[in-house]
């Protein structure tokens, strides 16, 4: 419990800053909604003149843009990017900094098992991420309602919740990376290339509309078009995502209790 509280306290400032800046970015993008909605109306006119088959292929994409959750789901890609960086930073640093700050011998000589230490750290990560998401929602929901009082809140919240799922995936990946490596000198040097790599794979994949690519990058596990149309997540991706998280955490425990941790 002490470890948990200590970790939570030391990451408090960091997650509050992250949550507020992500919420501010979301608010900025949401405020653009009204400017864009007129463009959408104009394009819907163009669509009426093209063959029906083509209109169906592209029309849904544009039709969904004309509601606030539809627009939000597309700008949400960039918020997922920020959230993923935060989560991976947190996951890597919470485990690796005992070694990089040379406090590993201090912690490991305490009468608690390594599994309990990792437990406390995982819980602190989870609570930080939950708190981040709650702060984020506390800002974005009022802004969304002010832009469009008739916003479909169920869809809005379902899209917002994908931030939490994606963060969990990146946090567990970060913990696994930190457990596997002997010593990480710079957290961002590991997290940024990884997160941006996944992000770029996802962006290229979405322009092309390639299905298989979606399993490769956590950014594409939640397809906004599917959520908007069905008010549900795609089961196969949720299951894969949950499996990856559980597998990463389980492996982290197995490796961490046996790991040779270098002190001083």
């Amino acid at each position: 419990m002490n470890i948990f509280l200590h970790e939570l306290k030391s990451y408090r400032k960091s997650f509050i800053i992250w949550a507020i800046s992500m919420a501010a970015t979301a608010a900025l993008f949401l405020l653009l909604y009204q400017a864009i909605s007129s463009d959408i109306a104009a394009f819907t006119k163009v669509l009426e003149s093209v063959p029906e088959a083509l209109r169906n292929a592209l029309g849904f994409l544009v039709g969904s843009l004309s509601t606030l959750p539809g627009f939000y789901s597309i700008i949400f890609t960039y918020l997922l990017l920020c959230g993923a960086i935060q989560a991976m930073n947190l996951g890597i640093s919470i485990v690796s900094r005992e070694v990089s700050a040379k406090t590993a011998d201090f912690l490991l000589t305490k009468p608690v098992s390594r599994a309990i230490i990792l437990n406390a750290k995982l819980m602190a990560t989870l609570v930080s991420l939950v708190a981040t998401n709650l702060i984020f929602l506390a800002v974005t929901v009022p802004v969304a309602l002010s832009q469009d009082p008739g916003t479909n809140m169920q869809l809005f919240l379902m899209i917002s919740a994908t931030l939490f799922f994606v963060q969990l995936m990146f946090a567990s990946l970060g913990i696994l990376v930190a457990v596997v490596t002997r010593k990480i000198k710079s957290v961002v040097a590991v997290s940024l290339p990884t997160v941006f790599g996944f992000f770029i794979v996802g962006m290229l994949g979405s322009v092309i509309g390639d299905k298989a690519v979606r399993y490769l990058t956590p950014f594409k596990y939640f397809d906004p078009a599917y959520i908007l149309a069905n008010s549900a997540y795609e089961v196969s991706f949720v299951v894969t995502g949950a499996f990856l998280i559980v597998a990463a955490i389980a492996m982290s425990y197995l490796i961490y209790v046996r790991k040779d941790i270098h002190t001083v």
Binding site: A35, I36, D39, I40, A42, F43, V46, V50, L54, A57, L58, L61, V62, L65, F71, I74, I75
Partner: peptide
């Protein structure tokens, strides 16, 4: 068809 989408929408997409 894509070329007919207004520039702002193309940026969003």
């Amino acid at each position: 068809l894509i070329s007919q989408i207004p520039a702002t929408l193309r940026a969003v997409l």
